[in-house]
């Protein structure tokens, strides 16, 4: 997958729309689980070199909470949701009614579940859109430096490409504003299937 394939504006628009559909479903799922209104911004889509991705999302050394889900089937890839530290504390408050340490096992498990719902419904929205089956793997969760948690995702995509597409959104739960990001990266084969399916 070359940079030219990815930087085509039509392709970027399509991916933006897919990200829109996916994140919309993800947020709806989260909203019905927690029984609160969840808002979401229109995803911003970037094409970036592997070495620079962390900088789009923030300071590579900043401590964040991240959930990664790999998926296989009609589309293969991996997706990750990242919450910065203050967003994670915001989630603890909004969902558990009290704050706790970022590495608290109970908090981690809550983050993992929220991430799993977001990524899982993101993936199933894409599957419905393409009328196909996509299976998600069990989620992985970590609290660490942004750059470090991104390695999992980048190692996956780095096997095929030097560049990748990043979709970034902000999620808000009632009055708590959560800087969350959904990053979705299809492999080159999946990418080809997307463009073929859409007749591009």
């Amino acid at each position: 997958m070359s940079k030219d394939d990815l930087s085509n504006p039509v392709i970027l628009d399509v991916l933006k729309e897919l990200a829109n559909i996916g994140t919309g479903h993800a947020v709806t799922a989260l909203s019905s689980m927690i029984g609160k209104f969840v808002g979401i911004t229109v995803p911003e889509v970037y094409l970036e070199s592997l070495g620079k991705v962390a900088n789009i999302l923030g300071d590579p050394e900043e401590e964040v909470a991240a959930v990664y889900v790999g998926y296989h089937g009609e589309l293969d890839g991996g997706a990750m949701v990242i919450f910065d530290a203050s967003s994670t504390h915001g989630l603890f408050q909004a969902l558990m009614g009290s704050d706790m340490d970022l590495c608290d096992p109970m908090g981690l498990s809550m983050i993992q579940e929220v991430g799993n719902i977001l990524v899982g419904s993101f993936v199933s929205a894409l599957a419905t859109f393409f009328g196909s089956t996509i299976l998600a793997e069990p989620p992985g969760v970590a609290v660490d430096m942004l750059g470090a948690v991104l390695n999992v995702l980048l190692a996956e995509v780095g096997q095929h490409a030097d560049y990748l597409i990043v979709a970034k959104t902000t999620i808000s739960i009632e009055d708590v504003n959560i800087r969350g990001w959904i990053v979705d990266i299809p492999t080159p084969e999946s990418f080809k299937r997307i463009t073929e399916k859409l007749g591009l």
Binding site: V141, N151, V152, A155, E156, Q159
Partner: peptide, 13 residues
């Protein structure tokens, strides 16, 4: 090894 997930055919990357 930050997350207990395997990458491609590499396992513990």
């Amino acid at each position: 090894s930050l997350m207990n997930v395997s990458v491609g055919n590499f396992g513990d990357i």
